[in-house]
Computed example of a mutant assay.
Amino acid sequence: MGGIEIGANESLMNPLTLFLQADIIVKMVMVGLLLASVWTWAIIISHGMKIGAMRKKSERYERDFWRAEDIDRFYQARGDDEVPAARVFSAGLSEWRRSTKNSHVDRDGTRERLSTAMGAAIAAEMDKLSDRLNILATVGAVAPFVGLFGTVWGIMRAFTDIAGMSSTSLDVVAPGIAEALFATALGLFAAIPAVIAYNRLTHGLNRLEARLTRFADGFHSTLSRELESDS
């Protein structure tokens, strides 16, 4: 008899069994949370790989840039690279050429425009790389409450079953309570990785942005010295 009870309890705790026994509302909550979890992991993997690759490519690009002896020649060879640092470099050099094509050069205005152009390029790159990260923040904030909604609904159903059967036996209460708590577990299963990944990926983006800013500042200083040498 004890073995039968243990087998019954194990069957009751089976996730598939809990899902199949749940009513339509709790099932919808569970399916929604599972889809949110899959979507979250897809974003985590794709963005983690993309940010890591872009950081390494930018590091190599910057290293090659600072080793280059001729900026114009480097731009012809590497100006169109699909790297954030390349687009920052292209934005700065394009603005430099527009600002210095006339005989009279407004040095202060040129410096200001260079800073604005490269700052805008950095912001555009960060916007592209951070696309869909807000979904992680949303899932991390909302999923526990969605799971809690499923839990509350399941507990209400369990109490309804108790009232209908006029019994407080554990056999009557347990299935509904287990389904309800499973919904909460799914909410946490979706939310916890989303919050951790959002913080880690945001940290990675902040590091990349700081690196691009330092690169832009260095290039800005190089061009500023060029302005002074032309005076």
Score class of each variant (00 low, 15 high):
residue 1 M to G: 10
residue 1 M to R: 13
residue 2 G to L: 13
residue 3 G to D: 12
residue 4 I to D: 11
residue 4 I to R: 11
residue 8 A to F: 05
residue 9 N to Y: 09
residue 9 N to F: 10
residue 10 E to D: 07
residue 10 E to F: 12
residue 12 L to Q: 00
residue 13 M to C: 04
residue 14 N to V: 06
residue 15 P to L: 08
residue 15 P to D: 08
residue 18 L to S: 02
residue 19 F to I: 08
residue 20 L to W: 01
residue 20 L to G: 00
residue 24 I to G: 04
residue 26 V to M: 06
residue 27 K to L: 06
residue 29 V to A: 06
residue 33 L to P: 09
residue 33 L to V: 07
residue 34 L to D: 04
residue 35 L to W: 07
residue 38 V to K: 04
residue 38 V to M: 08
residue 39 W to A: 13
residue 41 W to G: 00
residue 41 W to L: 09
residue 42 A to W: 05
residue 46 S to Y: 04
residue 48 G to A: 04
residue 48 G to H: 00
residue 51 I to R: 02
residue 54 M to E: 05
residue 54 M to K: 08
residue 56 K to H: 11
residue 57 K to Q: 14
residue 59 E to K: 15
residue 62 E to V: 15
residue 64 D to L: 11
residue 66 W to T: 09
residue 66 W to E: 14
residue 67 R to C: 05
residue 68 A to G: 07
residue 76 Q to E: 13
residue 76 Q to P: 01
residue 79 G to D: 07
residue 79 G to M: 08
residue 80 D to T: 15
residue 83 V to Q: 07
residue 83 V to R: 05
residue 84 P to M: 05
residue 85 A to Q: 10
residue 87 R to N: 14
residue 89 F to W: 04
residue 89 F to R: 02
residue 90 S to P: 05
residue 91 A to Y: 12
residue 91 A to D: 04
residue 92 G to L: 01
residue 93 L to G: 03
residue 96 W to S: 05
residue 99 S to K: 12
residue 103 S to V: 09
residue 104 H to F: 13
residue 105 V to M: 08
residue 107 R to T: 13
residue 109 G to E: 06
residue 109 G to F: 06
residue 112 E to L: 14
residue 114 L to T: 11
residue 123 A to F: 06
residue 124 A to M: 06
residue 125 E to M: 11
residue 127 D to R: 12
residue 129 L to V: 10
residue 130 S to R: 10
residue 131 D to T: 11
residue 132 R to C: 03
residue 136 L to R: 00
residue 136 L to W: 02
residue 139 V to R: 00
residue 139 V to F: 03
residue 141 A to M: 15
residue 145 F to S: 14
residue 151 T to M: 01
residue 155 I to R: 13
residue 156 M to Y: 08
residue 156 M to T: 06
residue 158 A to H: 01
residue 158 A to W: 00
residue 161 D to S: 12
residue 161 D to V: 07
residue 162 I to H: 03
residue 162 I to M: 15
residue 164 G to N: 14
residue 166 S to I: 10
residue 168 T to M: 12
residue 168 T to V: 14
residue 168 T to R: 10
residue 172 V to D: 04
residue 173 V to W: 04
residue 178 A to I: 01
residue 178 A to Q: 02
residue 180 A to Y: 02
residue 181 L to C: 01
residue 182 F to G: 05
residue 185 A to P: 05
residue 186 L to M: 14
residue 188 L to G: 07
residue 190 A to W: 12
residue 191 A to C: 03
residue 192 I to E: 02
residue 192 I to S: 02
residue 192 I to M: 03
residue 193 P to I: 03
residue 194 A to N: 00
residue 194 A to D: 00
residue 195 V to K: 04
residue 196 I to K: 02
residue 196 I to P: 00
residue 199 N to Q: 11
residue 204 G to F: 07
residue 205 L to A: 06
residue 205 L to R: 04
residue 208 L to P: 03
residue 212 L to T: 05
residue 217 D to N: 15
residue 219 F to R: 03
residue 220 H to V: 07
residue 220 H to M: 11
residue 223 L to Q: 01
residue 225 R to D: 12
residue 230 D to Q: 15
